[in-house]
Computed example of a mutant assay.
Amino acid sequence: MRLPGGERARLTMLYGGLLVLAGAMLIGLINFLVSQGLYTTITAAVARNNPDVAPAHSGPVPSPAAVPASPGPTPVQRDQEATTVIRTFTRAAEQATQNQLLTISLITLAVFSIVSVALAWWMAGRVLRPVGVITRTARRLSGENLHERIALDAPAGELKQLADTFDDMLDRIEHLVGAQKRFAANAAHELRTSLAVQRAAAEIGLATSDPAAVARIRRKLIEVADSSERLIEGLLLLSVSEQGLDHREPVALDELVRSVTAEHAVTQQARDRGITVRARAAPVTVQGDPVLLTHLVRNLVGNALRYNHDGGHVTITAHGRALEVDNSGPRVPPETVPYLFEPFRRLEERRHARGEGAGLGLSIVASIARAHQAHAEAEANPGGGLTVRVVFPGPEGGS
């Protein structure tokens, strides 16, 4: 049965009710125990303090023949009268004592009940104080003050653990909201830049009648359109991978690596720049979406080709439950490596050159890895370039 009122009122009713019940049981037990021996105690006390009044005769009752005749009451009669007096007095004293004890007990119980309810109310308030702090903080929070924390100053316990968990959740929410804001701003900037380039090219092309200039503008418009298309496809892929997997099936990662490696080894970019693309793949099978995993490997290899130098190399390795892509290239500052998995992050400012990526490659890799419960990490190579590693979970879901 659910008690009415708020949590503090319910706790007060429960705590106060238990204290009053315990007090009533204690008083009842005391009254019961006292009443059991009260008659004997009063009788003994009266006889002890009044030696002239003997209690009931305990010896053999003398026969009438043995008792001399006298005009007054006999000893037997006197003993009987004394016993009757003591019994009557004891009963009256017992009844008066019990009534007085009961009255005092009821008054004490009433006072105890009031004190118990007051203490229960105070104690419930103390216990629920952290919940009130959490509630007030949650009501204050908005997109502008996600930096606030409860930081509850309390002894270790369930409510302290709840407050700390709430603070940890706020840390994650703040990070996600910040990442979403940066993503929206960067996506808007990228798309706006492409549109501005297209508009400028169209205005210039329409203002001239030179066939060569028109041809150049046409090529430029096509390049910008291709770049915008790749950007939109990357954004859509990122959105799809963030939604998680609808189904899973066994995927031969080693075969996928060899297929993507062969595909990129003969690209014009690899041939023109003399970049060697090779694979070392042991048999590896993971559970996942084959389409998304293909995008993951293609993004890793494409990123390694794009950010490389002439005559460099790209090595794709699959072993254990890990996929690793290592490439040569410019030196990567170690402190910037963790930020490369964020959308639109590049080592250098975008120049809108031909073949330049949109800055979504590694962020898509990280998103697809999360969808597969895998972990993506990177480290800068001492001689330049980057090593990106994706570790997939084991058959039972462990890494």
Rank of each mutant, 00 (worst) to 15 (best):
V240Y: 08
A196Q: 08
Q198R: 14
E174C: 03
K220P: 01
L221F: 04
G178L: 01
E249S: 12
T267Q: 05
T208I: 04
A187V: 02
V266M: 07
T276Q: 12
E233N: 14
Q268L: 13
E242K: 15
D246F: 07
E190V: 08
H264P: 00
R230C: 04
F183I: 01
R218I: 04
D164T: 09
R199D: 06
V266D: 07
A201S: 12
E233G: 15
S239I: 07
E263N: 01
S194W: 05
A179C: 03
D246M: 10
L235M: 12
L253Y: 02
D164E: 08
V224N: 06
R216V: 12
D226W: 06
R248K: 14
A179D: 09
D171F: 09
T267S: 07
V257T: 03
K220L: 15
E174G: 09
V266W: 06
V251F: 03
E229C: 12
L238K: 14
H264I: 03
E249Q: 15
V266H: 13
D246C: 07
V197E: 10
M169G: 13
A225S: 14
E190K: 13
S194K: 09
E190R: 14
L221R: 09
M169H: 14
E203D: 09
A212N: 12
I275T: 00
Q268E: 13
R182I: 01
L170M: 09
V214A: 10
E233Q: 15
A187S: 08
T208V: 05
A200W: 06
L231V: 02
T165Q: 11
R172I: 05
L176P: 00
L170D: 01
A213M: 11
I173Y: 10
F166V: 07
Q243N: 10
